[in-house]
Every structure is written in C-alpha cells, then in structure tokens.
Write a protein that binds this DNA or RNA. Structure first.
Length: 465
RNA sequence: GGCGGCUUAGCCAAGCGGUAAGGCGGAGGUCUGCAAAACCUCUAUCUCCGGUUCGAUUCCGGAAGCCGCCUCCA
C-alpha cells in the first residue's frame, strides 16, 4: 500500500509516490551550527529519521540531504564574540551535532552539504534570478522581489498583501522595495569582519534561504519528492525557497512538504528565559538514556505539539525497558509447545504496524500494535505455548519493526570482570542461603546501575536504562 | 488584527457516526527465599452548551481554556 502524508501545500493527506520509481529524494532542513542543538531541534530530526527509516522499511531507496548552515548572522556574531575564525567555530558545533545524532540513533543522511562549501552554486542561482528579474540590487545587496512571484504565500497560505506590518520590520530593512522582500546576498559591511566571499556578484555573503535552494538542486535536482522541517520554517524560509527555486528553474520545486510541530516544555515554548531550555547534553547529564529521549520525542505524531516533561521521560524510559526486556528475554527463551497462535499474532502486528505508519506516520497505533504483540507473545511464552520457530519469527518481526523505531539497545554490554565476580559471590551466598549477603550484593550492583534477575537458567543482568 | 492547531482516565496518547487502542503510574493476584522479569484481573460515558441523527467522543453551531505562526526560531 502507498503511504499517505499530510502535504502542507494542499493541507490534505495525499498518497505518496516518488517521481522515480522506488527512489525517494528528500531534503531535510538541518541545524545552524552556532550552538548545541536543543531537544526541539531533535524532535524534528527524529521525525525525519522516522520518515527515512519508514520509507526504507517500505522498500524505497532514500537519498536524503540535510544542510548544515554554517554562515548566517548568528554564526558570524558568535564566532566574532569568541574571536575565533568562523570555520573553527562552526566545526566545533558540527562535530557536536553528529555526536548527538549518533547518540539518538538517527541514521546518517546521504549528504550533509555545508553552506560555506556551496557559495558558487548560490551565486549562480542569484545571478539567474537577477537575469530573470526576480532579484534587484541595492548597494550591493541582492533582494528577491516577491511581487514578481505571484504564487508567493502558497505554502504558508498567507495573504502577503494583507499582512499587518509588525514591529519586527527592522529599521535596517528600509531600503528594500517591499518589506516582505528578502535578501539573497548581503554585501559586506564592517560587522562581518573578515567573513566574506569575493564573487561575480560582489563581496559579501549569502542570505539564509538561498543555500537550501541551491544545495537541494545540486544533490536532488530541480524537482524532488519531499522537503521537511519544523513548522516555524514554513514561513518565511520554505516559502522563500519555493520562490527562489521556482523562479530560477521555472519548475515545481517540491511535491510534498512535511512539517513537524513544535516541542513545548512544561506547556510553554522552550526558551532560556523560562529556564526550560534543554540540549540533549543537559538531559544525558541528568542520567537519562539517549534512547529514552528518542522514544519520548518520537512516540507522538509529528503533527501534534508535544509537551516535554521529565515525568514523561521517566514514563518513556519505563516503557522502553519493557520493549528491550521483551526482546532480550525472548532471545534466551528456548522454545516449547505451540498453540498455533504465534503466526497470526505476528502477522497481525506487522500489518497493523505498517497500516498505522502508512497513515501519515501515525506512530501511536503502530506502537499500540507492538505492545499488544509483546503481551501476546509473552503470554504464550509464560504458558509454554511458543515454539522455537515461533520464537524466531517473533524475533524477526521485532527486528523488522525496530529497523523503523530504533529502540533496541544493540550494544552488547561488555561483561565487566568486577560485575562477574560479584554475581558469582552472590550466587554462592544464595547457595548458603545467606540471603542478607546476597541481597547486599544485589543492592550494591544496583547502585552501579546493574539490575539482576534470577531466572530458571541462572542469574541474568542488565544495565539500568 | 489575520491564520492555524489543540482540549479523551492520575500522566502521556490513538480513535473521529454505532456505544472508548496502547504506554506509564496505581490496586489486587500468580510465580519467587525476597526481588526483578512475565502473565492474569481491575483502573474514562471523551471541556461545556445547543443542534443534526435511530444513534455523536466522532458531524454542525456557539462558549470557555490552552498552544503556535504572521520575515531569518526545528
């Protein structure tokens, strides 16, 4: 079955078909590397990871591009404040970004183009827009004239003419023909210090929006399948990208626009002012596992505002524990009789999972199916009515589902010699029926983050999530 | 001022015309030296008021509350 996605362009769920059979090309707006990314950013990146993994699950080949914005007002300002070269400054946060997405189990995209490495492509597009009269120049600054693009506003569904002129129209923008025009190229001024490029269109630096138009075209072509980002990028960023790309190429830019809703923290928008601003690092420092962050940020449909709380994070961690325990315990199960139910339980789950995600990545019912399956298989296991073959196909099903969810903790915890010895000591103590000593060791291990489980086949251990 | 979204059990969250998935938490039980894990049982008339309908959480109208966007914030 074809998946359906909610397309911001039409505000309806549409059946998704890539331009090229079996190959999906998507552009996902990436980070501005001027600081550590916060959990709101990661919500969007995780939504994109879910989309990517699901498309692969469905059998598509995926070519994903995620840009790294390493030149803009914020990066320049911060680098200059620190008195270090821009490249050095952004390199630090690029590295941090990749460390973070690795921790969250976000699959790598095929391309991570950097804005600063694509100045010629941007210049070429600006020249083209200028030649086609979509752009005009004032004092070396190139602006896009939205008056020349009648469809402007079609994505955000905004009537630009009716926009109320707000206080945010900054004083330095008086020179533009229209307040809604945006910069394609910013001529150098002293605030930029030594950050500039000498190009055919002058000395300066690109505006923010042009990088996405130029780089998506380079890696994905003039028209491609999916473009995603946070809702806040819908306007003006994505609207401007459409104006630039469609103006320059005269072709439809993107077929499907998918936007993820905002993350709130404690019911309000995250901001440093409210002291509810968290990076991934902040949360890991508090002792939570990255995979729990992955779970909580992914487990709510991407088009719904998600309220992040630490209570929610604890709840996510506990649910994940069950998910992971199920898999680990099933692996150790050696098989029994069969009631014949196994097959249908597994098939029902896989179908339900796929049907749910086909419906605009509706992950809640998809997870519901998985947890139903976990309970049903555990029941059969508890009754001794799950055969070895059924166990194997249940494990396969779990792995298949997890190729999309990424909730299984794959890294085999290496056995620490000290832990081993303590477990042995405890087993000895238990044999002597010295339960006080045995429980003492168990408590000690718990303090080290190791949970013990006595099973029929001996004592098992796992790391606390 | 314009535009959009949301309101379902203690918390999170599906469903969107036929009488409420799932997760977490909680209560009781089985198992266990005790735990843990696991299983079983229990834990909601869906913000309010009207209307349409044989029937509404689901459609329509209204009210209240909350959140977001409206030029560089995912």
């Amino acid at each position: 079955m074809l998946p359906k996605f909610f397309n911001t362009l039409t505000r309806t769920k549409e059946e998704f078909k890539p331009l090229e059979d079996n190959h999906v090309r998507m552009y996902t707006c990436g980070p501005t590397v001027y600081d550590f990314a916060h959990i709101g950013n990661f919500r969007t990146f995780l939504f994109e990871d879910l989309l990517r993994r699901y498309l692969k699950f469905k059998g598509y080949k995926v070519t994903q591009v995620m840009n790294l914005t390493d030149i803009d007002d914020k990066t320049i300002k911060s680098a200059m404040a620190k008195k270090i070269p821009l490249g050095e400054f952004t390199a630090f946060y690029k590295r941090a970004f990749f460390e973070d997405i690795d921790k969250l189990g976000i699959e790598r995209a095929e391309y991570y183009p950097e804005a600063t490495a694509h100045i010629p492509e941007m210049v070429a597009m600006i020249k083209q827009l200028h030649e086609k009269a979509y752009a005009y120049v004032i004092d070396g600054n190139y602006y896009y004239s939205i008056a020349k693009f009648p469809e402007y506003g079609k994505l955000a569904h905004l009537d630009i003419a009716g926009l109320k002129a707000g206080v945010r129209i900054a004083a330095d923008e008086y020179e533009k023909e229209s307040v809604s025009d945006f910069a394609l190229w910013k001529a150098w001024d002293e605030n930029d210090g030594d950050i500039y490029w000498e190009t055919e269109i002058g000395k300066g630096r690109p505006g923010w929006h042009i990088e996405c138009s130029a780089m998506s075209m380079k890696y994905l072509g003039e028209t491609f399948d999916i473009h995603t980002g946070g809702v806040d990028n819908m306007f003006p960023h994505h609207e401007n990208e459409i104006a630039q790309s469609e103006g320059a190429n005269g072709k439809k830019f993107v077929n499907f626009w998918l936007h993820s809703e905002h993350l709130l923290v404690d019911g309000i928008k995250m901001s440093k002012r409210y002291n509810n601003y968290y990076t991934l690092r902040d949360i890991l420092d508090k002792g939570y596992a990255a995979v729990a962050v992955r779970y909580i940020l992914m487990a709510t449909n991407y088009r719904q505002q998600l309220n992040f709380t630490f209570d929610g994070l604890v709840s996510a961690r506990n649910g994940l524990e069950r998910y992971n325990d199920f898999y680990a315990n099933l692996k150790d199960y050696s098989g029994g009789q069969t009631s014949g139910e196994g097959k249908s339980i597994i098939e029902r789950m896989l179908k339900g999972f796929e049907d749910a995600l086909d419906d605009d990545l509706n992950i809640s019912p998809a997870l519901g199916e998985v947890f139903d399956f976990i309970r049903d298989i555990n029941r059969l296991k508890a009754e001794g009515l799950l055969s070895r073959e059924e166990r194997d196909s249940a494990l396969n099903a779990m792995e298949r589902v997890d190729s999309v969810l990424g909730f299984l903790i794959k890294k085999k915890a290496e056995i620490d010699a000290d832990i081993e010895n303590l477990i042995k000591e405890r087993t000895e103590a238990k044999k002597r029926r010295d339960f006080a000593a045995a429980d003492g060791i168990r408590r000690k291990l718990l303090d080290m983050g190791i949970i013990l489980e006595d099973t029929a086949s001996g004592t098992k251990w796992k790391r606390k999530l």
